[in-house]
């Protein structure tokens, strides 16, 4: 069976310039290919969704975008520079422009929340201690955790860890924010609040945001661009605005995913 690649181009009214450009990316663990020939653009100010069924390589794609895993083939460009052609030191410096919210929060367990947020500020800015702790408190307040500065990650709940992780990701006011399954393990209302927060961040800071998720509600609420990875054919089968994909994409897998149709919703 051949699947037709239905690549829909985003036709936004305002001209946008691509922020992240992925070209012919092939990802593999050893000889085991996860996804091949991925080609898509993430535009400045997009909320870009990486979606697809469980185990199709969404998080792996994220790890390639943020410089944690080397591609088997292909390129990831940020503007004009290729992430994987930089030498390691340069890449390390470049990665400071990213803010990343990991699936489990990944807060440093030996530090308090304020120290978690303050660490990168201490390293990369000349701010004084009191200024850093003010910023940390402010970021915690933004995610609804005012007053939790001196708590250790093990002392707070899963949802709070996620929010604290988000506060840490925002510490350096990054150009690009990456979210790995932000709403997984959150109750519907918290998930909704997190979505609102993501939209707010894009609108107020103008950050580009990349979200790995398979929560349909979030996908339609926040996404304005996306890529759909298929585990069966091991490549992308659609890209574009998820709402347009729902209306126009005739690929059965994409359609089934976006409508929760058919058994095995993915």
């Amino acid at each position: 069976m051949t699947l037709i690649n239905s690549k829909l181009k985003t036709q936004n009214s305002k001209p946008t310039k691509p922020h992240i450009i992925v070209r012919d990316l092939t990802m593999a663990y050893g000889t085991n290919v996860i996804q091949r020939d991925l080609t898509f653009n993430v535009n400045q100010g997009d909320i870009f969704i990486i979606m697809g069924g469980s185990g199709c390589g969404k998080s792996t794609l994220l790890r390639h975008l943020i410089g944690l895993q080397t591609p088997a083939k292909g390129q990831v460009f940020y503007g004009d520079v290729s992430l994987w052609d930089m030498d390691p030191d340069e890449r390390e410096r470049f990665m400071r422009r990213f803010g990343i919210l990991y699936q489990s929060g990944a807060l440093w367990s030996s530090m308090t929340l304020a120290e978690n947020i303050g660490l990168t500020l201490e390293e990369y800015t000349d701010l004084s201690h009191s200024e850093i702790s003010e910023i940390a408190s402010f970021k915690l307040a933004l995610v609804g955790l005012a007053g939790f500065e001196d708590y250790y990650p093990s002392e707070i709940s899963g949802g709070m860890k996620k929010r604290a992780g988000l506060a840490r990701a925002m510490a350096l006011d990054p150009e690009i924010l990456f979210f790995d399954e932000p709403s997984a393990g959150l109750d519907p209302i918290s998930a909704r609040l997190l979505d609102d927060l993501i939209l707010e961040l894009r609108d107020s800071l103008g950050s580009t945001i990349v979200v790995v998720t398979h929560e349909l509600a979030s996908i339609f609420a926040i996404g304005n661009n996306s890529v759909f990875l298929d585990g069966e054919t091991k490549t992308m089968i659609a890209t574009g605005d998820p709402k347009k994909l729902l209306a126009e994409c005739r690929n059965p897998t994409v359609h089934a995913f976006l409508t929760r149709g058919e058994p095995g919703k993915g």
Binding site: L68, M95, Y102, L107, S109, T120, E123
Partner: peptide, 18 residues
């Protein structure tokens, strides 16, 4: 090892801290 499992090491790397 536990930090590796919790992605804390990844978080350090992506924060540019070796």
């Amino acid at each position: 090892g536990t930090m590796q499992v919790n992605e804390e090491i990844d978080a350090l790397k992506t924060s540019g801290i070796s």
